[in-house]
Design a protein around this nucleic acid. Structure first.
Lengths: 198, 198
DNA sequence: CCTTTCGCAATATGATCGTATCGTAACGAT
DNA sequence: ATCGTTACGATACGATCATATTGCGAAAGG
C-alpha cells in the first residue's frame, strides 16, 4: 500500500473551499479552478477526490443538511432556561436565519440547491423531505406550546408551522439582499410569534 | 437616415427570448448565443441592440417589474366587488404567487435575478427598490383596511406588510418546488389574512 | 531492491463563453 | 447618383470552463 491519506477529510477541506467561494462570489463563480485555488491545491487534486463537478457540488450539498441540523441543535442547546416550547421554537427559527456569516453561507448554498432542485426531481425530493422534517419539528413545538398553555389553543399547528417557515424563508432573502437589518428581521419574526401566544 | 426600425420593439423581442430560456433552464443557461438562437436572430443583432450582456439582462429585468406590476393591476381590476381594502389586499398578494404558468415564469426569472443581485450591487439596489414599492403598496392597503374598520386597529402596517410579503415569498418557493398545492398555499395565506381582520 | 499503487501536479483538449471586428445590404439625405 | 449612416450577419479572438491524459515521487509489500 502506498501513502495513506484521510480521504474524507480531504473532501471536506475541498468542499469548504467551495463554500467560501459560494459565500462571497455566489455559486455561479464556483469552478474547479477556483475551488482548487481557494483550497490552495492543484486542480488535479480536486479531480482526484471528486469524479466531476457534480460530485463535488453534491458532496457540498450533502454537508448542508448536516450543518443546518447542527446549527439548530446548537441554537436550541444554548437557549438559556427556562426551556419553554415557545422559547425553543424561537431558537429553531432564529437558527434558520442567516444572521452571521456562517449562516449566510449556508443560506446561499441552500438557495443554490433550491435552484438546482427546480430542474432535478431527485434533488427536489430531497429538499422536500428536509422541509417536511422541519415542518413537523416546528409543528411539534407549537403543539407542545399549546399543551403548556403558552400558545393559543385554537392554533392549527401545521398551518402555523407553514406560515412561520415561509416567513423565515422570506426573511432570509431580505437579509441576504441587505434589504433589512438583523434587528428588523428579528422584530418581524417576534411580532408573528407573539401573535401565537396566549 | 437609413432603414428605420422600432428599436424598442426589437429589444423587447430579444428580451422575451431571454425570458423563455431563463424560465425553463435558469438564468445560468442564458448566453448571448442561446438568446440569439431562441429569438431566431444572429448574435450580431443581439449585440447591435444591447451593448453587452449586462445591458441585455438589465433590460430584461426591467421588464420583469413592468410585468409584475401589470399582473397585480389586472388582478386588482378583476376582483369582483365589493372592493374593500381587504379584498384588494388579497388580490395583490395572490397576484404575486405563481399559480399559473405565466406567474411561474415570472417567479423563476425573479429568483434568477435575485441570485444575480446577490453579487451585483446595482441589481440589488433595483431589486430592493421594487420590494420597497411593494411593501408600501401593501402597507397602504392595510392602513386603508384599518381606517375602514375592516382590519384590526392595533396593526403596524409596515410590519404586517413585511410579514405578508415574506410569507408570499416563502409560499412561492413552496409552489415552485411542487411541495404544496395551490389550494393549500391559498389556505395558508388566507389564514394569515384572517388574523388581521377584526 | 524493486515493483506496484496511490497521491498529486502539469498540461492538453475541446467546448462555450462574451466580445471585437469585419463585411455588406438597405435606405434617406444631399 | 452617391454618400453616410444604420441594420445586420459572419466570423474571429482570447478567456475560461469541465474534463482527460500523462507523468512522477513516495511508500508499502514482495
Amino acid at each position: 500500500m502506498p501513502k495513506q491519506v484521510d480521504h474524507d477529510q480531504r473532501r471536506r477541506q475541498i468542499a469548504e473551499a467551495l463554500w467560501r467561494i459560494s459565500a462571497d462570489r455566489g455559486l455561479e463563480a464556483v469552478s474547479m479552478r477556483e475551488v482548487a485555488a481557494e483550497a490552495g491545491v492543484s486542480i488535479g487534486l480536486v479531480q482526484h477526490y471528486f469524479r466531476d463537478k457534480n460530485d463535488l457540488v453534491g458532496f457540498a450539498v450533502g454537508r448542508l443538511r448536516e450543518r443546518i441540523e447542527e446549527r439548530v441543535r446548537r441554537s436550541v442547546a444554548s437557549t438559556p432556561p427556562p426551556h419553554t416550547p415557545r422559547r425553543l421554537l424561537r431558537a429553531v427559527l432564529v437558527a434558520l436565519l442567516p444572521l452571521e456569516s456562517e449562516g449566510r453561507t449556508e443560506s446561499l448554498v441552500g438557495i443554490a440547491v433550491f435552484i438546482r432542485a427546480l430542474g432535478d426531481p431527485d434533488l427536489a425530493a430531497t429538499y422536500r423531505r428536509g422541509q417536511a422534517l422541519l415542518v413537523t419539528a416546528v409543528a411539534d413545538q407549537i403543539r407542545a406550546g399549546v399543551r403548556d398553555g403558552e400558545l393559543r389553543p385554537d392554533l392549527d399547528a401545521e398551518t402555523e408551522a407553514d406560515i412561520l417557515l415561509a416567513l423565515v424563508s422570506g426573511l432570509t432573502t431580505t437579509l441576504l439582499l441587505g434589504h433589512g437589518s438583523a434587528d428588523q428581521v428579528l422584530n418581524t419574526l417576534d411580532h408573528q410569534l407573539a401573535r401565537l401566544a396566549t
